[in-house]
Design a protein around this nucleic acid. Structure first.
Lengths: 133, 133
DNA sequence: CTTGACCCTGTAGCGGCTCCAGGGTTCATG
DNA sequence: CATGAACCCTGGAGCCGCTACAGGGTCAAG
């Protein structure tokens, strides 16, 4: 019992994904090519909506397209072990934590620079600290 | 009293910048084109070393190339007011803080997903949470 | 019949590099 | 003097994940 097919614009609205991005996902084979109307318009079904939402949720969580490809292929084999998904999440979590640490250090340095002086460049701590070793 | 000129490889070592990146900076006019030997080899001087270190330090702090262009032109006019540098740092600091906030939220979500179960995909919280709305 | 909203393809651009192919140069060694 | 390693050159393509065109076709409403 397939629902009535929807246009790419509709799919974009239901999934929160830009139309250009949807076509891009098709080109990189992340989203399977849908049927076409006689005029060549793409016609998506509920499966596409679900898959694209999955992709979007993954992207929102910061997974790379390749990671999402892996997660999708896992999702398609429900009786296989899911250690792969676990490792993927753990790896990504470690990445995120590294990035937070890097940015926090950066924030500290930038806070040290802010409100340099309000005077001229020659006396400016910001420029100074960029020049200094 | 200019020091003896150095090769691009030497400049790379002294500044911690990749050779390819140095040539790229020249192409985008961030680093001025140096003299050349008769054979066409680039010959850098101390000014280049200083400027490239400035650039690198700026990049390490997460400034965009365009921001660095601005900072460099400020640095070249020591008697001008330095409010521009201040605004640049403040804006960048705000960006960094936004990114930290975003990543922290992400970290929370990923921590909620980690150690899904150790069983099969069908019972996997990770895949589940990507499928669910 | 025209207007406007939608759709199509294909290509180029973004930032900030990084890498490669296909060469030339320089210098120490045999 | 030949050889090889280490360096240098240019120009162009590739990376990621889109986004933005240009230049057209389609379709429904008024």
């Amino acid at each position: 019992m397939k629902n009535s097919p929807i246009s790419i614009g509709q799919l974009g609205k239901r999934s929160g994904v830009n139309i250009e991005t949807i076509r891009y996902y098709e080109k990189i084979a992340l989203l399977p090519p849908p049927d076409r109307t006689p005029a060549g318009y793409r016609q998506y079904d509920d499966g596409h909506v679900r898959r694209l939402r999955f992709i979007r949720r993954g992207r929102d969580l910061g997974f790379s397209v390749e990671a999402i490809r892996t997660l999708l292929s896992l999702a398609e084999h429900p009786d296989q072990p899911c250690g792969g998904a676990d490792r993927l999440v753990a790896g990504h979590l470690a990445d995120v934590e590294r990035k937070i640490a890097d940015l926090s250090r950066l924030r500290g340095e930038l806070q040290g620079l802010a409100n340099c002086c309000g005077h001229v460049v020659a006396e400016c701590r910001i420029i100074d600290s960029l020049i200094a070793d």
